[in-house]
Amino acid sequence: MTEDSFTALMLLSTALFVVGLFGVLARRSILIQLLSLEVALAGPSLAFITAGARHADAGGQAMFVMILILAAAEVALGLALYLRLRRTADGTDSDSLSSLRH
């Protein structure tokens, strides 16, 4: 792997992370926020793969697999929560979930 492609991939992974983060911050719909979270998690995944490739280390792939598992678990929990939340609150507006404050 060349140094240029490494840099490009790292930048891409950082961009993925930032885009995901921005999605969570900018969108109010719970579903979209969960989706954005997945995008954000894709950033470090790509970075680990890239770094693993660069150092010829299988640890990167291992981390990637674990992040996948985490992402799946998180989505599962998130969707369950989403279904629950829809009964009591407006699922399209996460900002309405603000009874716990101050």
């Binding site: 109010r28 996460s94 603000s98 404050r101 101050h102």
Partner: peptide
């Protein structure tokens, strides 16, 4: 205490 808006997006 007004900082603690209770909105996930703000916290984020």
């Amino acid at each position: 205490r007004r900082l603690q808006t209770g909105r996930a997006r703000d916290h984020g």
